[in-house]
């Protein structure tokens, strides 16, 4: 007994140490850097300054923020529209079929997402698979411009993020008591009514979790905008990457990251409030 308690303590200490070392400390450094002044030669100067946050209010940066939120929102919506029916039907399959579908969903994840983004390029390119197929079928006469468009960016983000929407939805829908659906049907509810008044409200925790898991990382996937969008217009992830790697303006890069983290915190708080309200309602 005693030794297992010790192991437990050791594990706790190691995990906490890991989190502090690689989570809390870098985060604090990031927050601290965002309040320093920029320096043309070093990455920052040890002088307190709110300049970076003021710079973020420049119309150019605000526009980047707005664009990024739009892209992320559109991606989240698409993922939800496709992911919800997918998760629902998967949760209704027989057990072996369910496992098979989930494994198929996960397999692409064994490949690095950067490699998969390059793969999308090969599909969407002027001489890519999609254009070749459409030309061969006689649907179009000249190749469509698909690559280096906003559509390509959203498509790429959607493809990369879809499983992050499906998995929490599936986890939620799988636990749903199907007798509730049957009861609704017995009491004369149609498909739409069952969906909107029974299934949807019960799956809300999954919907929120999925949306957060898609929306937040989407804001940071800078290479998708670069590789599929032609780097013509920057998203917030590109901005952070550029401030750190090219412009060497660490305070501004940090401030942008802090804003992203705050947005994420806000969304998580919202999620927590919703969960609490749902739990409260159920208890009544």
């Amino acid at each position: 007994m005693k030794s297992s308690g010790r192991t437990e303590r050791l594990v706790t200490v190691l995990v906490s140490l890991w989190l502090v070392l690689f989570g809390v400390v870098p985060l604090l450094l990031l927050v601290a850097t965002s309040f320093f002044a920029q320096d043309p030669i070093d990455f920052f100067r040890l002088a307190p300054s709110l300049e970076s946050y003021r710079q973020l209010l420049d119309p150019g940066y605000l526009q980047v923020m707005r664009r990024s939120v739009q892209f992320a929102a559109l991606t989240t919506l698409l993922c939800l529209l496709i992911g919800y029916p997918f998760a629902w039907y998967t949760s209704r399959l027989s057990r072996p079929a369910r496992v098979l579908v989930l494994v198929l969903l996960m397999i692409p994840f064994w490949t690095n997402s950067l490699v998969r983004t390059y793969a999308i390029r090969m599909v969407l390119g002027s001489q890519g698979l999609l254009n070749q197929a459409l030309l061969a079928l006689g649907i179009i006469d000249s190749p469509l411009r698909l690559l280096y468009t906003d559509t390509a960016v959203v498509l790429g983000l959607f493809y990369l993020m879809l499983p992050f929407m499906i998995l929490p939805l599936y986890a939620c829908l799988e636990k749903l008591d199907y007798r509730l659906v049957e009861a609704a049907r017995d009491l004369g509810a149609g498909f739409l009514q069952t969906l909107l008044r029974i299934v949807w409200p019960l799956s809300l925790p999954g919907v929120y979790a999925g949306c957060i898991m898609v929306f937040v990382p989407t804001m940071g996937l800078f290479y998708v905008a670069t590789l599929l969008g032609g780097a013509r217009q920057l998203l917030v992830g590109n901005l952070i990457q550029q401030q750190f790697l090219n412009a060497r303006n660490w305070p501004l890069g940090s401030a942008t990251s802090v804003v992203l983290i705050l947005m994420m915190a806000l969304m998580l708080t919202g999620y927590w409030l919703v969960l609490r309200r749902l739990a409260g309602r159920r208890r009544q």
Binding site: P40, P59, G60, Y61, Q63, V64, R67, A231, R232, Q233, L234, L239, Q242, A247
Partner: peptide
């Protein structure tokens, strides 16, 4: 250099 940098960013952020 910072002048170039500023305009370069403006060019890329859609202004």
């Amino acid at each position: 250099l910072p002048i170039y940098q500023k305009f370069w960013e403006q060019l890329r952020t859609g202004n």
